[in-house]
Amino acid sequence: MKENELKNEKSVDVLSFKQLESQKIVLPQDLFRSSFTWFCYEIYKSLAFRIWMLLWLPLSVWWKLSNNCIYPLIVSLLVLFLGPIFVLVIRELSRERSLSKQLTQFCKEITKNTPSLDTHDWEVVVANLNSYLYENKAWNTKNFFFNATDCEKMFRTTVLEPFSLKKDKAAKVKSFKDSVPYIEEALQVYATGFDKQWKLFITEKSWSPVGLEDVQLPKDIHRSKLTWFLKRIFTIYSLPLWLAFLNCICVSQHFCLAFRILCPGLFFLMMVWLFQNMRTTALLVKMEHKMQFLLTIINEQESGANGWDEIARKMNRYLFEKKAWKNEEFFFEGIDCEWFFSHFFYRLLSAKKSMWLLPLNVELWPYIKEAQLSRNEESLMKK
Rank of each mutant, 00 (worst) to 15 (best):
I236H: 08
I236F: 10
P240E: 07
A244D: 02
A244S: 15
L246T: 11
L246G: 05
N247K: 10
I249D: 02
I249H: 09
C250W: 10
V251R: 14
F255K: 08
F255H: 08
C256G: 07
A258C: 06
R260G: 06
R260K: 13
R260D: 03
L262S: 10
L266F: 06
F267V: 01
F268T: 08
L269K: 06
L269Y: 11
M271V: 14
W273Q: 08
L274H: 05
L274P: 11
F275H: 13
N277D: 07
N277G: 10
N277A: 10
N277W: 13
M278E: 14
T280Q: 14
T281P: 03
T281R: 10
A282Y: 06
A282P: 05
L283K: 05
L284I: 04
V285S: 14
V285E: 10
V285Y: 07
V285T: 10
M287V: 05
M287K: 11
H289Q: 04
H289W: 05
K290A: 01
K290M: 13
L294C: 03
L295A: 03
T296W: 01
I297H: 00
N299K: 11
N299R: 13
E300H: 14
E300M: 04
G307W: 12
G307C: 08
G307R: 10
W308N: 01
E310M: 12
M315A: 07
N316Q: 07
R317S: 13
R317F: 08
K322H: 06
K323V: 03
N327P: 02
N327S: 09
E328L: 02
E328H: 00
E328T: 06
E328Q: 11
F330Q: 03
I335D: 02
C337Q: 05
E338M: 01
W339N: 11
F340C: 02
S342W: 05
F345N: 01
Y346H: 15
L348C: 15
L349E: 12
L349P: 03
K353V: 09
S354E: 09
S354L: 08
M355V: 09
M355N: 14
M355T: 12
L357M: 08
L358K: 15
P359N: 12
L360F: 10
L360Y: 00
N361M: 07
V362C: 04
E363Q: 08
E363D: 04
W365C: 03
P366D: 04
P366L: 06
I368W: 06
K369T: 09
K369N: 11
A371T: 12
E378Q: 13
L380E: 04
